[in-house]
């Protein structure tokens, strides 16, 4: 019985199909991460401005996005946009929109944190060496900011991949959906396939996220001092 169960993974192109599903998840995550990093840097810079209006607006945006479960945001965009604007967004597009909105908030906060954590005397000691403002940024501030930011941005990627698992709940065909299909298709021949297939999905996610997490913590340690 047991070896029968695990066999379903390698029957036909089942495993390849699972990997294909995982790729959809990862693709959506990567697109969202890249957009989030770009927009997040802009948001982070915007948040360091002293302008009360931008301060208030960005704060409300940040707080709302961060307090809402991502699944709620997905529902809002996927179901709400259709109703509100009469446009039918696909699950994948909704996902990219939501995860970019969310990632931008997270990234923006990280960027702001990294920027304000550079001590003022770093600017001053740069100036004392006779560097110009642009040189101070280029050689002193930006490299230090990046060192704080890069591990956090990489971490955001694993969080993004994990969160993207939610898209199955708005009907996107990704790894969990394909898992369900495989289990359905084999429900009479391999009745215990659910254990093996969902177990495999669990480890596929792990294998996708774990190396990225390791990289992030390595870099963080390396750049700590």
């Amino acid at each position: 019985m047991q070896d029968l169960g695990i066999r379903v993974l390698f029957m036909g192109n089942n495993f390849i199909r699972l990997l294909g599903g995982l790729w959809i998840t990862i693709k959506i995550s990567l697109i969202s991460v890249v957009l989030s990093i770009v927009l997040g840097i802009l948001l982070g810079l915007l948040m360091t401005l002293k302008n009360p209006v931008t301060k208030a607006v960005t704060k409300v945006y940040l707080e709302f996005i961060r307090i809402m479960p991502q699944l709620v945001l997905l529902f809002l965009v996927y179901f709400g946009a259709t109703k509100a604007f009469g446009i039918q967004l696909s699950g994948q597009v909704s996902a990219v929109i939501v995860f970019t909105l969310w990632g931008t908030a997270e990234m923006g906060d990280l960027v702001r944190g990294a920027l304000i954590s550079i001590p003022k005397h770093q600017y001053e000691s740069g100036a004392a060496l006779g560097l110009e403002s642009s040189q101070i940024y280029r050689y002193i501030i930006i490299p230090q900011t990046l060192r704080r930011l890069i591990p956090l941005a990489i971490n955001l990627t694993t969080r993004m991949i994990k969160t993207t698992s939610l898209i199955v709940l708005i009907g996107v065909v990704e790894v969990l959906k394909i898992a369900q299909q495989i289990i359905e298709a084999n429900r009479y021949t391999v009745p215990d396939s659910a254990l093996w297939i969902y177990g495999a999905v669990f480890f596929l996610y792990f294998l996708a996220c774990w190396p990225i997490s390791l990289l992030a913590s390595k870099l963080e340690k390396k750049w700590k001092n």
């Binding site: 169960g5 698992s165 969990l176 289990i183 009745p191 996610y205 997490s213």
Partner: peptide
């Protein structure tokens, strides 16, 4: 800790709810 932090809750739940009954 590594397993828990690098997998989504949704997948963990699917495994618990749909997978484990099979054994």
């Amino acid at each position: 800790i590594e397993l828990s932090r690098n997998t989504p809750l949704l997948v963990q739940l699917f495994f618990l709810y749909f997978g484990l009954p099979k054994i």
